[in-house]
Design a protein around this nucleic acid. Structure first.
Lengths: 207, 207
DNA sequence: AATTTGTTTAACAATCCTGTTAATGACAGA
DNA sequence: TCTGTCATTAACAGGATTGTTAAACAAATT
């Protein structure tokens, strides 16, 4: 079945190239000819497989969103139930950061391209709702029971999530500036921020 | 001098329209005809005054950057010297947030359009270096003397600045999601985040 | 009034970019 | 081997978008 493999290879090559192009340049900045070139196919092939630029874009958002959601839910599932609430939050936060760092353009792409568009946002909300819904209730329970057992400072769940997402997203985005602004490598900067984010969250949760 | 006023009006109208268009859609998403229309002039006028889309873009980055830098330095200058280090940091942070919130697309625009481009980044670094340099030394002195008088937890200056910028930028960006995700207004969300950011920073600075 | 200077308009040119199509090739099943 | 289907290519069509130009116009200067 070399034909089917070939077909998958072509499709995958286009998808990979498209992901890179869309994430780095945004929808309007991306060029379909550039994607085709990067994928090593004629640009007619791109239209043959995905019809339009919009459809191709939708395909890559779908997978990107799926990967993002999975990374968080997986990280939470893997948690040791015996850990304290504080330790669990930190562990999920770090797993989330590791995923984001692998695709550092993702946060600004989401903010620029996906969130402002009501339609795309609907899509992401649908995909995320079930996963985030259960994560939410789990966290809620953990926070409530933690308040009984541990000494947790008063904090609302939305603000806690906002803190984590905020710190991680900004870490990923600003990591691209690290080498340009400070005289350190991206990896050094990320390591510093990881430590700093952990300090911030731990201090925040302590009474 | 109605002619010069008129000229200024046309120029300003184009610049204002361009700022809105570029900030919300990015360079490649922006359309010069849309800018001209918004400004109420023919699109030939746009080229007459600014020659090219690129040149117009450079003009608006210049002013945007200048306003951003000024907002921070002004906020720092206005500070009461009798305040504690912690209070001063919080005051500057809040002033910074107020400015950003007025142009909520600014952070994602900077991250998407300016920072990735080495050339544009050079520009912003030049413009910011003198202002940020003096701010930096002022903060450094304040931090050192604070460590003698007050009880400040160990933190490096880059990380402190990174914390503040990070939290504020993310607040502005995510505020656009507030109404879509949580059932609250943007203003309510910003107020909540402002409070939360202040708690985070104060706790971070305390030993 | 004539000239000059700078502003504005409308039409047009040129290019870039997306998407199509018709022709060709490859290959599986009848 | 013939036929039909799918993959691929090259060339092109259409439209959007940026940028130019020539002519009209307004205002100031001589």
């Amino acid at each position: 079945m070399t034909e089917k493999e070939d077909k998958m290879n072509v499709e995958k090559a286009i998808l990979d190239a498209a992901t890179e192009e869309f994430l780095s340049k945004g929808f309007s900045g991306a060029r379909t000819v550039a994607i085709a070139e990067k994928a090593g196919v004629t640009h007619a092939m791109l239209h043959y497989y995905f019809r339009t630029k919009e459809k191709l874009f939708e395909c890559i958002i779908d997978t990107v969103i799926k990967e993002l959601i999975d990374s968080v839910t997986e990280a939470y599932k893997r948690q040791d139930a015996s850990l304290s609430f504080e330790d669990r939050v930190v562990a999920v936060m770090n797993a989330h950061l590791d995923f984001i760092i692998a695709k550092p353009q993702l946060p600004s792409f989401l903010f620029m391209e996906i969130f402002p568009s009501t339609e795309n946002f609907k899509l992401i909300k649908e995909k995320a709702s079930s996963a985030l819904g259960s994560l939410n209730t789990q966290l809620k329970e953990a926070l409530e029971s933690a308040n009984n057992n541990e000494e947790i400072d008063n904090i609302s769940l939305p603000m806690l999530i906002s803190d984590v997402v905020t710190l991680n997203a900004a870490t990923a985005i600003s990591s691209q500036l690290a080498t340009k602004l400070l005289n350190i490598t991206k990896e050094e900067y990320v390591a510093m921020r990881k430590q700093e984010n952990e300090i911030l969250i731990r201090k925040r949760l302590k009474k």
